[in-house]
Nucleic acid binder design. Structure first.
Length: 210
DNA sequence: AGCCAGGGTCTAA
DNA sequence: TTAGACCATGGC
């Protein structure tokens, strides 16, 4: 059976390795903006508005909401970003001394931050070995023919053999995104994709995992 | 025209 | 504990 590490190596041979952002605060606010939204909208927002930590704290709620508008759910997202800005300003100096579980529970207590967003922030902003399990990852596992019954099982498979390597965790998530974006939308890659044999949307044809 | 895009919260049973 | 409604915008 294909191991998580082998899957990673295959993906890494297909796509460039990519990290979210080297700036922790950028990761934090973009992880909120991207919720249920195309990445292009996040780029648009990041390009047209200065959402640095100091800029956000100087903005009114109305200005922040206006800045978040292109990403949809602007009222909710701007409120979450506001809450995260004060949270981040207070926690960033002491974060090194905090347990990952402790950091995560603090994140989850913020309205608008759920499991996936918390995982993104822990991994890319605080460099903790947390696997970001999103809909694309579940879809990928499904299409590979795995039948897990819970996210707990999926994480157990995915994290095994990665030695808690933060860089690998980070690259892995982007690689899965690249694959799933390319999968059924770009025929040339699709027909030559070693992870898949046919291109019909919704097909759950297992691929050879030997 | 209508569906989807990297979610999360709240409610109901 | 799980399913479904809801939130709101841009792109195709």
């Amino acid at each position: 059976m294909l191991s998580s590490r082998e899957l990673y190596d295959r993906l890494a041979s297909l796509f460039p390795l990519r990290w979210w952002s080297d700036d922790p605060w950028t990761v934090v606010y973009q992880s909120v903006l991207v919720q249920h939204t195309a990445w292009s909208n996040v780029e648009k927002t990041s390009a047209s508005a200065d959402l640095s930590l100091s800029a956000v704290s100087a903005m009114s709620d109305e200005e922040l909401e206006r800045a978040a508008r292109p990403c949809g759910f602007a009222k909710a997202k701007s409120g979450t970003i506001r809450a995260l800005s004060s949270w981040y300003a207070s926690v960033r100096t002491e974060a090194d001394g905090l347990d990952t579980d402790e950091l995560k529970s603090r994140l989850l207590s913020i309205k608008g931050v759920g499991q996936e967003t918390a995982s993104v922030i822990l991994l890319y902003a605080f460099r903790r070995p947390v696997f970001v399990l999103d809909a694309y990852t579940r879809q990928l596992l499904e299409r590979l023919g795995f039948s897990f019954s819970s996210d707990c099982q999926r994480l157990e498979y995915l994290e095994k053999g990665l030695d808690g390597d933060v860089s690998v965790f980070g690259y892995y998530h982007w690689l899965i995104l690249e694959l799933c974006k390319a999968w059924c939308r770009k025929k040339p890659l699709c027909s030559s994709c070693p992870l898949r044999q046919d291109c019909r949307r919704g097909s759950s044809e297992p691929v050879s995992a030997s």
